[in-house]
């Protein structure tokens, strides 16, 4: 297969431009994470997340659904959430819902692909974020026991 140098260069500059555009968002998000992590004590999170399998995954999925941005941010925020003692189930639901449910893109999705499709897809996405999070944590626990 022959390498198309022009297209290769274009691919790099497109990727570079995408990352460059993300830079202010990344700096802003990192500053916010730093502020929230420093200002809010780890104990305060336990008032929101109660280690209830369904409630925690629901809250995690809800926050993920209304959050906007590149999934990259969900990994950073999710990682910091785990470091702050928030349960893996809530973080997992949060990360999955962040990328599978699109409240902000809903108008465009429903206009281009149909309202019924967009609605069903997003509702299923939300439900699947909760179900997947529960499955994932159960599997991780089983693997942990086996290891």
């Amino acid at each position: 297969m022959e390498l198309d140098y022009q297209r290769f260069r274009d691919s790099f500059s497109k990727a570079g431009l995408n990352l460059w555009r993300l830079a202010p968002l990344l700096i802003g998000t990192a500053l916010l994470i730093a502020l929230i992590t420093t200002a809010i004590s780890k104990e305060a999170y336990s008032t929101i997340f109660t280690n209830n399998l369904f409630l925690d995954s629901f809250i995690g999925a809800f926050i993920g659904s209304v959050s906007v941005g590149n999934p990259l941010f969900s990994y950073i925020i999710g990682g910091e959430m785990v470091d702050n003692g928030i349960g893996l189930i809530a973080v997992t639901a949060f990360i999955i819902a962040w990328s599978t449910v699109g409240i902000i893109q809903f108008p465009a999705e429903s206009m281009i692909l149909g309202k019924r499709f967009a609605l069903i897809r997003n509702i299923l996405g939300f439900a699947f974020a909760i179900i997947s999070a529960i499955f994932i944590v159960i599997i991780i626990n089983i693997l942990g026991v086996l290891v």
Partner: peptide, 27 residues
């Protein structure tokens, strides 16, 4: 908070070089 921010940036910025290469290859 700024100390925490700096530690966060030091952790994630080097990864962006790898992300750039992978994004370009997929493009």
């Amino acid at each position: 908070s700024l100390k925490f921010f700096m530690s966060l940036i030091i952790k994630i910025v080097p990864l962006f070089l790898l992300i750039l290469v992978l994004m370009a290859l997929l493009n």
